[in-house]
Simulated scan of single mutants.
Amino acid sequence: MKVSASMSAPAVSVTAATTIGEAARHMDVHGVGCLAVTEGGVLRGLVTDRDIAVRAVAAGLDRDDPVADVMTTPVVTLDAADDIHVAYRTFRSRGVRRLPVLDGQRVVGMLTVDDLLMDVFRRVADLLGPVAWSVLEEPPGPRDEIGPRAPVDGKSPPASRGS
């Protein structure tokens, strides 16, 4: 599976001259914790909610200062055509939570650790689907307080010992 299948698209972006206050409003309006900082469509950096809290607010910067003062650079990126396993390895080795996804030099999306968790959940669901159906047909374990297990194939379940 390709990175492009799991990324959020399009990535929300601002310019380096965008104010810290305006960047925070963009994050709020779009429900994201990270903005791509671009100039002429080329990625220049990232600004995260943590950058605003730690590098701006804690450092006493003004909300009218540009995001260029607090953005993270250089930026680790992924290519839209990369296999999702490249993303897993990159997150693990680089210790980041968000990665911009590029098509050439153009930012086309953002991949987050949460996106990968959704991928894991889908894979587990695919794997466990057949098991879940078999459990629904005959739940495992002894009879509980609710009563005996439902009959399977028209036959009554075996009696529980000690009942």
Rank of each mutant, 00 (worst) to 15 (best):
G40H: 07
V47F: 08
V37A: 13
D153Y: 14
V135M: 15
V32F: 03
P139A: 07
W133C: 11
T77P: 07
D119G: 03
F121M: 13
R92S: 15
P140S: 09
P130S: 10
M118T: 06
S156Y: 15
T15G: 15
L116P: 00
K155G: 02
D144K: 03
A36S: 01
V14H: 08
R55A: 15
V96C: 09
L111P: 10
S4L: 00
A9N: 04
V14Y: 01
V75F: 04
G45W: 02
G31P: 04
T15I: 12
L127P: 02
V75C: 11
D83R: 04
V42W: 07
R161S: 13
A58P: 02
V37R: 03
V96N: 04
R97S: 00
V37E: 09
D64S: 13
E145P: 07
P158S: 13
L43K: 00
A23H: 08
A17E: 14
T15L: 03
M110T: 03
R106D: 02
L102K: 03
M7F: 05
R98V: 01
L78F: 06
E138T: 14
L117H: 08
L116N: 10
V108Q: 02
A81F: 03
R25Q: 12
P139V: 07
R149C: 02
V124Q: 12
A11G: 05
D51Q: 10
A56R: 10
G129I: 02
V120P: 08
T38K: 06
T90Y: 10
V124I: 15
V12R: 09
M1R: 06
V37L: 03
P142A: 14
A36V: 09
T38E: 15
P142W: 12
D103Q: 07
K155F: 12
L128W: 05
V12H: 04
A53K: 07
R106G: 05
P158I: 00
D126Y: 00
E145H: 10
D83V: 03
T18W: 09
G33K: 10
